[in-house]
Design a binder for these strands. Structure first.
Lengths: 116, 116, 116, 116
DNA sequence: GTGGTCTAGACCACT
DNA sequence: GTGGTCTAGACCACC
């Protein structure tokens, strides 16, 4: 995690967990670390750790069983849904940012080759 | 301008002015609107307008003559420099975000076609 | 702080903090007072206090962790760099001002002795 | 003149005229250019040119004969007085700025040798 | 008229 | 509680 970044830490951690779920490193239904463990491993404030699961749950990425723990969603389509949503957002922002610099969609492959 | 966006207004306006400079709509050395005019046309507070020119000057995009006004930089290379820097940043972020979703560089053209 | 000076207050405070960092009174990584504390101790507006940290961060003298606070830079070389830059500026201006009064570099020690 | 500098233009011009008086390029009692000429040669606003002589007169560096023009002061001691005043100011500021960077008066000769 | 600075007070997201 | 942003309105020096 980059503590100096302007991206909120809780979003950085969620992105990390989400990426691991997409990679299959975390599988549907797997138990996620407790928020206290999260706080320790990511070296973040317990409040922040708690917020992470609140937010993930809100997004349907995880669910909680009281007294037992938090688990990765068992519904793979939720993941797929999020993935598509993000793709759309990322690509949309990418294109509009490029256009504001005067680039055209056709130029993209060349630009990526040049600037990657 | 999107006043509800998470992107600060002053950055939105700067991006707008920068884009117009890249397009050649604003030319090197051109007088920019006074901060008070800026406040009126963009419907923002004079204070925020002032901040815009402070920040643009810091980035070398404009310079100020006291009591006269603010002018677009006369050095086109500054613009080019900013353009390249931004391109690199945008493309870099784009690729790393895609990779965190499990996409590969080779997939990009297809993805853009699909999600644009 | 001299509120009547032509030097803006926020620059005076920055100079003060910078000097304390150079003296070692504030050490690399130390937490700096919150902008609200700064406002109280220097008897300035919270807004002005915020500006101080914005500017210091821009100069690489401090960094910010959202929701936590502002910290003195952990990289002592930044400080050294600023010190050298300032020294060069101060001495350069000093010499050119003296020369415009018809003094020579050789005269400086005598002048300082005489006018200090 | 440096139009981008933060130093007011009228002060830059005054400094220039003063320096030429100290060098003897302009002699006591010499006619100074009319404010219109000043405006043309220095490429400044007529208002600014007028202000220059107002200010110089206030400082005793010049005097005006209505309908004839503005002249350099005939009293060399005024110049000497200004020179000493400036020297004191310059050296005072120099020393206090150096001290705020943790330098001592004894270090000055070495510093000048190093950074000039 | 122009930009530069400051006060005053508010709202927001993040920790 | 912390910084980041914004509005509102004021004063100043400069051109």
């Amino acid at each position: 995690m980059d503590f100096k970044s302007n991206v909120p830490i809780y979003l950085q951690v969620i992105a990390d967990l989400k990426a691991r779920m997409l990679k299959g490193e975390i599988r549907p239904g797997d138990k996620l670390p407790s928020s206290r463990e999260l706080a320790v491993t990511y070296e973040i404030n317990p409040n922040t750790a708690a917020r992470i699961y609140t937010e993930m749950e809100r997004q349907g990425l995880s669910y909680t069983r009281r007294g037992i723990g938090t688990f990765a969603t068992e519904d793979p389509s939720v993941l797929e849904y999020h993935r598509n949503l993000e793709l759309k957002r990322i690509i949309g922002e990418f294109i509009s940012e490029l256009e504001s610099l005067g680039c055209r969609i056709e130029d993209i492959p060349g630009l990526i080759e040049e600037y990657k």
